[in-house]
């Protein structure tokens, strides 16, 4: 995985004005949370921002991959999935980065995490 510093350099050099963000679902066999609604809310957040672009999760040039998993098993938290992205954020039921996050706050926390990644690269 490319380090954050080099990632932003790549992004600038590429001449693009958009951060390429992808969504990947675990497969939704028996989710503990409403993954569709969560995904829709994240997509709306991305669409609201001019500098963000939603791209397919199998794209080979992803800046931030959001992996939405319905339970703590986090089946899609796999290197072969995440290796296409420079950064990844993985939810696991009501959890993110090993911490418990209530479902009602997950979309907002994800948005904040995306903003954080974006701003840290812009500094």
């Amino acid at each position: 995985m490319v380090s954050n510093r080099f990632w932003f350099a790549d992004y600038i050099n590429r001449g693009s004005h958009k951060i390429r963000i992808a969504l990947k679902y675990c497969g939704s066999c028996n989710p503990e949370i409403d993954l569709s609604a969560l995904g829709a809310e994240v997509r709306r957040f991305i669409a609201r921002r001019e500098s963000f672009e939603l791209v397919p999760h199998d794209d080979l040039d992803i800046d931030i991959l959001i992996v939405l998993c319905g339970c703590q098993r986090a089946c899609a938290d796999r290197e072969d999935i995440k290796s296409h992205a420079k950064h990844s954020l993985v939810t696991a039921g009501e959890g993110l980065r090993g911490s418990r996050v209530p479902y009602k706050d997950l979309a907002a926390i994800l948005a904040a995490e995306i903003e954080l990644l974006n701003s840290s690269e812009s500094d």
Binding site: C71, Q72, R73, A74, A92, G98, S99
Partner: peptide, 14 residues
């Protein structure tokens, strides 16, 4: 098989 990682890094059954 449906277990998961805890923040401590250890694994828990479903």
């Amino acid at each position: 098989c449906q277990g998961f990682a805890q923040p401590a890094g250890s694994f828990q059954a479903d």
